[in-house]
Structures are given as C-alpha cells and as structure tokens.
Amino acid sequence: NQASVVANQLIPINVALTLVMMRSEVVTPVGIPAEDIPRLVSMQVNRAVPLGTTLMPDMVKGYA
C-alpha cells in the first residue's frame, strides 16, 4: 500500500509547510503520495489541517 502525507501537527492556513509538519502513513482514502513531501515544503494549505489529517491535493495551494 502506498503511504500518504499526513499532518504531524495542526497546520495553520497561510503558513509555509516544513518537513516537521508532515509524516508518511498508509491511510484510507489515499492522499498526496509520501514521495511528494519534498515538493510540498514551502507550499501552503488553503484551510487549517488538524493533526492526523491526510493531506489531499485540493488542500495545498499550487499542488494540483
């Protein structure tokens, strides 16, 4: 099963993503693939993302 990107903490809106904010985990439904974590660094989410939430492509500005 493919690992997805999961919030490692509350990720506020309009804050640049850092490695420490994200972890990889096998979850259902599948979200952004874990291998895209380096690409996500410095991008921003378009809504607050609670701890443990799977990041979906539509949550990250400029990802999709």
Results as ranks from 00 to 15, higher is better:
1 N>W: 09
2 Q>I: 13
2 Q>L: 14
2 Q>C: 15
2 Q>W: 11
4 S>F: 03
4 S>L: 01
4 S>R: 02
5 V>L: 03
6 V>M: 04
6 V>S: 02
7 A>R: 02
8 N>A: 12
8 N>D: 11
9 Q>W: 06
9 Q>H: 08
9 Q>E: 11
10 L>R: 12
11 I>N: 00
11 I>Y: 02
11 I>V: 07
12 P>W: 04
12 P>A: 12
13 I>V: 10
13 I>K: 13
13 I>N: 12
13 I>R: 09
13 I>L: 13
13 I>D: 12
13 I>T: 14
13 I>G: 09
14 N>F: 07
14 N>A: 09
14 N>V: 03
15 V>C: 06
15 V>Y: 15
15 V>A: 13
16 A>E: 09
16 A>M: 15
16 A>I: 10
17 L>R: 00
17 L>Y: 01
18 T>F: 03
18 T>E: 07
18 T>I: 06
19 L>T: 07
20 V>D: 10
20 V>R: 15
20 V>Q: 12
21 M>R: 01
21 M>L: 04
21 M>G: 00
21 M>P: 00
22 M>H: 00
22 M>W: 03
22 M>E: 00
22 M>N: 00
23 R>K: 10
23 R>P: 01
24 S>C: 09
24 S>W: 08
24 S>T: 14
24 S>Y: 07
26 V>D: 15
27 V>F: 02
27 V>W: 03
27 V>Q: 04
29 P>I: 05
29 P>S: 04
29 P>N: 05
29 P>R: 04
29 P>L: 05
29 P>A: 04
29 P>M: 04
30 V>G: 09
30 V>P: 13
30 V>D: 11
30 V>A: 11
31 G>F: 03
31 G>D: 01
32 I>K: 00
32 I>W: 02
32 I>M: 03
33 P>A: 08
33 P>N: 08
34 A>G: 08
34 A>H: 12
34 A>Y: 07
35 E>D: 13
37 I>D: 01
38 P>W: 10
39 R>L: 11
39 R>S: 07
39 R>I: 07
40 L>Q: 00
40 L>I: 14
40 L>T: 00
40 L>N: 00
40 L>P: 00
41 V>C: 08
41 V>E: 05
42 S>I: 03
42 S>K: 10
42 S>F: 12
42 S>T: 11
42 S>D: 11
42 S>E: 08
43 M>S: 06
43 M>V: 04
43 M>L: 13
45 V>M: 10
45 V>Q: 00
45 V>A: 05
46 N>I: 12
46 N>H: 11
46 N>D: 08
46 N>T: 12
47 R>G: 05
48 A>R: 13
48 A>V: 10
49 V>W: 03
49 V>H: 02
49 V>D: 02
49 V>Q: 01
50 P>L: 08
51 L>E: 13
51 L>T: 13
51 L>V: 10
51 L>H: 10
52 G>K: 04
53 T>D: 10
53 T>E: 08
54 T>R: 03
54 T>L: 04
55 L>M: 15
55 L>Y: 01
56 M>T: 12
56 M>L: 11
56 M>Y: 11
57 P>G: 07
57 P>R: 08
61 K>A: 12
61 K>R: 14
61 K>H: 14
62 G>W: 10
62 G>T: 05
63 Y>W: 14
63 Y>P: 04
63 Y>L: 06
64 A>S: 14
64 A>I: 13
